[in-house]
Amino acid sequence: MKMLMKGTEAIAEAAIRAGCRLYFGYPITPQSELTEYMAKRMPEVKGTFLQSESEVATVNMLYGAACTGRKVMTSTSSPGFSLMQEGISYMAGAELPAIFINVMRGGPGLGDIQPSQSDYFQSTKGGGHGDYRMIVLAPHTLQEATNMMKEAFDLAFKYRMLVTILVDGMIGQMMEPVELPEWTKPEEFEEPNWALTGANGRKPRKVTSFDLDPYELEKMNLRYQETYKKVSQNEVKYEEFKIEDAEITVVAYGTMARIVKTVIDYARKSGIKVGLFRPITLWPFPYERLSEISKNVKNILTVEMSYGQMVEDVKLAVEEKSDVHFYGRSAGVVPTPAEILDAIKKIVR
């Protein structure tokens, strides 16, 4: 049965159904409803909700809980995600699985609390120090976000990596009917063979992100790189929407992509054939597929709720095969369908 739910709440409930019983978080708009939902819901499912004293503490609580091999998550918004970057780097180095929900808002600095896609760089390029990556998933509807929670935990444990679900304030605050996913019971989940649980007769296990010997540390880094390569080969996801006959293909993710779907309807009614290429994994980015597509279309327009972050990856994929254009608004201003249609008309006319 479908239920009308707020994005933050649908994501929280889906995480619980995916077997998450440990949530740590610190309030921040526009995602506090997720934290509040967990405060209410976790005790009902015998899980743990803890409001930390800061996002710096949150990420380290996550580090600790993840060390024990349990399914753990947090949620935050841009300034909080910035504070978590140190811990994220440590967790990536320790190869710990965990889920981060970043409900982005306008920046930089305190910025505002309106929807934005300002943290693409921070999420996909490594906001903390060192050579690391995290898997970044970008749903564009609440149903997709809800379905993604289980997948996110599966990916995190399969590769021992961090997974960020990157959405904006609009997905956080809007309501849409969702069909909630089936329950995965925490008991069905096998304890990983690296988890710190107390040696109890077996050889003690260690989880760290350091080795002072550069050659040893390099080995660790090469192992991470090996993982990242596998993920890039196996886990790339995207959606193609009406691109077969398109004279111009728009590249957009998340909320922006769904707004573009409406634009495509308008544009086609007025005789302009527009298609959409929507990366679902922002890291790994679908370079190869986009590269192929760019061979057959003259113009590519990237639309973002930022002044151009993903467009850099689009350019890397396209090289010189087609013309890459950009349209974006930032600071919490959401480009409207009419504006995007204008941007498209300027290019094709």
């Binding site: 708009t29 505002d112 605050q173 809007m174 309501m175 849409e176 009917p177």
Partner: peptide, 11 residues
């Protein structure tokens, strides 16, 4: 039917 509900929020 399909629906979306989008609130204004904040200041």
């Amino acid at each position: 039917l399909n629906v979306t509900w989008l609130p204004s929020y904040g200041p």
